[in-house]
Design a protein around this nucleic acid. Structure first.
Lengths: 232, 232
DNA sequence: TATCTTGCTGACTAAATAGTCATTAAGAAT
DNA sequence: ATTCTTAATGACTATTTAGTCAGCAAGATA
């Protein structure tokens, strides 16, 4: 670029439509990395390539920006999963693996994974928003695991299991991987190979679901029966 | 208390030895609940029953307080576990269950569980401290699971498994329970019954470790061999 | 080209909070 | 009882940062 052209180009552009999205993206990145309180609005504006005044043209306050960013991030893709899963033709073991891997690639590995860490960090400061996230994302996400497990039990592929906490246990390693990416990965910890890790995890689950009688397990696990609500 | 006694009792006491601990406890609670940036030193002092000036008699700065609180919280109990485990006489399945349950009762359910959430939230703002926590707590904690698994494989109780990520997968549901207690539990989410949850988790693990050949698992899991470093 | 509308700026204000220190009084020493 | 030492105070300062707004200029309109 010539010196003249540099002088001639406008100091700023009008981009009314693009600003909110760019500001929200910048804000989300910083909120995830630093948390709500430690994020400076000047930094958000700078990262979005505008001044702080512009930020306030599109968002009423720092808190409004935060809520907007979270709520936009929760454009639930869960319905898509529910439709996909109901149409699934393969075994439940295959469905479980598909669920875990596609959840990772479409949610865990994206900015949505960062939102999980952010909400967990800020739950104490934004209880109402955390409750909303809990009900709309976590509970519905768990529902996907409920579906797979009940499907497997109903078809006889999996043994009968109590459902109260199993979905959480299935999800925990995947959620931990998300959290890890946005915390200890940032400070030099060796990065986890997601494919290997998730393959290991799903194989452990499938083994546990397919195992027969094993001596020495607790009464809870061996006697309680699932009550399938899924019709295959 | 009579009006006279009330007038007579000192407005404050000298308690040089007790102050640092009381301040650190108050600070830790607030840091866990609100995060570092959102915690006000006036609130810390108030909760510890002193003025802000007193806080600065014992800690150089807010950041020094934070580091002190974390480092004190990392008085590693892991050595005790290592000794206990090496002397263990029962099966590896029993040892695994013992490890999970005693980890929960002695670490997860205490303030140390809160530190995990705090470090995860603040990893981006205190990378050096996060690295320290990672090396001293997380890596060594994983080592406990490495020990149990290798012990079970060496004795023939567990099948041979690749070790790279299995300890993380075993720990993930326990860690998630810790994080949950300090995040979504605070905003009305139904509290998890730790005993039932952990029993379910350990049973799943033991089933997976004891399972024989299962069709349809990935090559990684079925062919890779563990290289036990533990002598039983 | 001249005019108008409005997206954008950045210096500004107000409020919050980390950090200081001269003063006070608890309680030990004499 | 008197004196002395120092733990503790709380009003203070300096700094940071959320939030404002009068003016500027991009670029649409005529």
């Amino acid at each position: 670029m010539s010196a003249l052209a540099k002088i001639m180009e406008p100091r700023w552009e009008r981009r009314k439509d693009a600003r909110p999205g760019e500001l929200a993206t910048a804000a989300l990145e910083l909120f995830i990395e630093r948390g709500f309180s430690a994020t400076r609005l000047d930094d958000v504006a700078k990262r979005a390539g505008v001044s702080k005044g512009t930020l306030y043209l599109y968002f009423d306050s720092k808190e409004a920006l935060f809520k907007s960013v979270i709520e936009d991030g929760i454009v639930s893709r869960i319905e898509d999963y529910e439709i996909f899963m109901r149409a699934y033709q393969g075994t439940s073991a295959e469905l479980l693996r598909d669920l875990v891997f596609s959840w990772w690639s479409q949610i865990g590995a994206t900015k949505l994974g960062g939102i999980a860490k952010l909400m967990m960090s800020e739950a104490g400061n934004f209880p109402a928003l955390a409750k909303f996230y809990h009900d709309e994302v976590i509970t519905r996400g768990m529902g996907l695991f409920v579906y797979v497990i009940e499907r497997g039990v109903a078809s006889g592929e999996f043994r009968s299991v109590p459902m109260e906490y199993l979905p959480r246990i299935c999800a925990a390693p995947v959620v931990m991987l998300m959290l890890w990416r946005h915390s200890f990965d940032l400070c030099g910890a060796k990065q986890i190979d997601a494919d290997v890790y998730l393959a290991m995890h799903t194989d452990m689950l499938i083994r546990a679901f397919k195992s027969g009688d094993i001596a020495g397990l607790t009464a809870t696990e061996t006697t309680a029966a699932a009550s399938p609500s899924v019709k295959i």
